[in-house]
Write a protein that binds this DNA or RNA. Sequence first.
DNA 1: TGTAACTTTCAGTAAGTTCTGAAACTTTTA
DNA 2: TAAAAGTTTCAGAACTTACTGAAAGTTACA
Lengths: 166, 166
Amino acid sequence: MDWKEGKEKFIQAWGALGTEWGVNRTMAQVHALLMISPYSLSADEIMEDLQISRGNANMNIRALMDWGLVYKELRPGDRKEYFIGEKDMWKVVRQIIINRKKKELEPMLKVLDEISGVTEDCDEAISLAKTVNDIKMFSSKADSTLDKLIKADSNWFVGTFMKMIK
Amino acid sequence: MDWKEGKEKFIQAWGALGTEWGVNRTMAQVHALLMISPYSLSADEIMEDLQISRGNANMNIRALMDWGLVYKELRPGDRKEYFIGEKDMWKVVRQIIINRKKKELEPMLKVLDEISGVTEDCDEAISLAKTVNDIKMFSSKADSTLDKLIKADSNWFVGTFMKMIK
DNA sequence: TGTAACTTTCAGTAAGTTCTGAAACTTTTA
DNA sequence: TAAAAGTTTCAGAACTTACTGAAAGTTACA
């Protein structure tokens, strides 16, 4: 297999994975492209490579910068903006966790707290309260674990996880 | 807040969370409904409660049974099928991990292996190979961790994770 | 300050996903 | 074995999300 074919496959696979995780396909593909590119690319190069429109490219590059997975790079003497992808897998995963946690876990915990106000004494209310409580316990545990994970560095992760799964 | 309002909110929130994780809204809502219901429900009751069609209810109940999150329950002397949701949060999370792992992680690893065939000696090929390798290392680590997690029981999880994050 | 180079926005359209409802199928029981 | 009760399937409709392309907005230089 030559690298062009490999690149093609990689971008496809990453895009598909993104879709299943609620990330839009193009955003994941732009990310894949920048992750494997040894140098920064301009919006035009990205558009050309993935065959997408300027608007689409712009919006997804922006989203990736918001997520902290892509950075702007300015080349002296060139007015174009170039973009470079985060290459460190650990940082990539970390950024994704940070973003999803904020967007999903925290709102969920908020709703659960509100529901804790239910205190009637019928089967339904009791069952609801129990489920809500279980989820709360589980998620606050997950939440603090993720917090530690986020603060920890890559080596810590490798070391501790390896020990833990032995 | 009375339990009906709480139930309503819970189903909404669980549905929204599902959407963000690539699970369809109705499937997540049916799951939420069954999770907090103290007794099993028939397809008709689910349709009525969530205001959805028979076809929709049927397809999503089936999907939940495939995922191992909902079971069929037969009441003696009644020809209707009743459904009961898995109540143990730990099992719910486990089942979800098992299913997503199979559907997503494994295909990704397969593609990465294929791409490992790229061995040219230009910048592009080297950068691609490096990224692919990093992801492979990361995912096989994640994979084996998840395997242990799946095999472990709830108490183990609580204990080890708590130790780990201290 | 004018204009060229580049970036951002957004209304309309395309693509993709989920839902409905009715028909086909299966099972049970009289 | 007929028909009643229940379940499954699926084509098309409804809805949701993503993309295009052109116009508006910025910035940078002469």
